[in-house]
Amino acid sequence: MRLEQQPVYVLHLRAYRETSLLLECLSRDRGRLGVVARGVRGARARVSRAQLEPFQALRCDLLLRGELATLLAAEGDGPVRRLAGTAGLAGLYLNELTVRFTRRQDPHPALFAAYARTLGRLAAGEAPDWTLRRFERDLLQATGYALRLDSTAEGAPLEPEGWYVYQVERGPVRCPPEHAYALRGVDLAALAADREPAPAARLPLRAMMREVIRHHLGGEPRTWQWLARLPRR
Rank of each mutant, 00 (worst) to 15 (best):
W130Y: 12
S27H: 05
P109V: 10
G76R: 15
R170I: 00
M209E: 06
A116D: 13
R170M: 05
A84H: 08
S20M: 03
T19H: 14
P172L: 06
H108R: 15
L62Y: 06
L203C: 00
E4K: 09
G76Y: 11
Y145I: 03
L58D: 12
R202N: 01
I213S: 04
V47K: 06
Y166M: 03
A57H: 04
L132C: 01
G162F: 04
L122Q: 09
E169W: 12
N95K: 08
L3N: 03
A50H: 11
E96T: 09
R103S: 13
V173H: 02
R148E: 02
L62I: 06
R14I: 05
R148M: 05
E169F: 11
G34A: 15
R133V: 03
R174E: 12
V80Y: 07
A69N: 08
T102K: 04
L72C: 12
R232M: 02
V168Y: 04
Y166T: 01
R82Q: 12
R233V: 01
L147M: 10
V212Y: 05
P199M: 00
Q141R: 15
R137H: 13
E169P: 00
A84Q: 13
R59W: 15
V173M: 09
E18P: 11
V173P: 02
R38K: 15
F55M: 10
T19W: 03
A180V: 09
L13V: 08
L11A: 08
A123L: 04
V80L: 14
R232C: 00
A198R: 05
E4R: 15
L97E: 06
R229F: 08
W226C: 01
L119E: 01
R17P: 10
R100E: 06
P7N: 10
T223M: 08
G34H: 04
Y181R: 15
D194A: 15
R222G: 09
G218P: 09
R222K: 15
V212A: 09
A142T: 11
P109W: 10
Y115N: 01
F135H: 00
P231Q: 14
L140T: 08
H215M: 06
G34F: 02
L23K: 10
Y93M: 04
P128E: 06
W224F: 06
H216N: 06
P177L: 01
L21W: 07
T223E: 04
R81D: 01
